[in-house]
């Protein structure tokens, strides 16, 4: 994947943690969306996306995150984000993601609030 972008998917009992690493833009966002769709197809509708290793995100990447939120909402699911930088946190709130998904400081609290 370009720019060393990587998606790690960890399935647990009743939820999934997806960890990204690298720049989140349109092609890498699509890779993330594919990973989310695969776990949803397997019946998981509680997902944590951990952005600890993703510092830069562009607006196209965020639009793909919105698509994941919408897909999960259609399934009655929950999406929580964690480990955002302060600037990511501000942008997510500005774009309204915080009204549709949880934002938590770390993975443990994101999982606890699924």
């Amino acid at each position: 994947m370009a720019n060393g972008f990587n998606v790690d998917v960890h399935t647990e009992d009743g939820y999934v943690v997806i960890q990204t690493a690298g720049y989140l833009n349109d092609p890498t966002g699509e890779a993330l969306a594919e990973a989310a769709k695969e776990v949803m197809a397997d019946g998981y509708n509680k997902i944590v996306i951990d952005l600890e290793k993703t510092r830069l995100i562009n607006s196209i990447g965020i639009s793909i995150l919105i698509e994941i939120i919408e897909l999960l909402e259609e399934q009655g699911g929950v999406l929580n984000f964690c480990n955002l930088t302060p600037v990511q946190d501000r942008i997510f709130k500005m774009m309204g993601l915080a009204q549709h998904a949880g934002i938590f400081p770390d993975q443990d609290s994101a999982i606890a609030n699924l």
Partner: peptide, 13 residues
């Protein structure tokens, strides 16, 4: 789309 605007955020950001 469904309350969340996906695109057109560039200048606002």
């Amino acid at each position: 789309s469904k309350g969340l605007r996906k695109r057109g955020w560039g200048l606002e950001i």
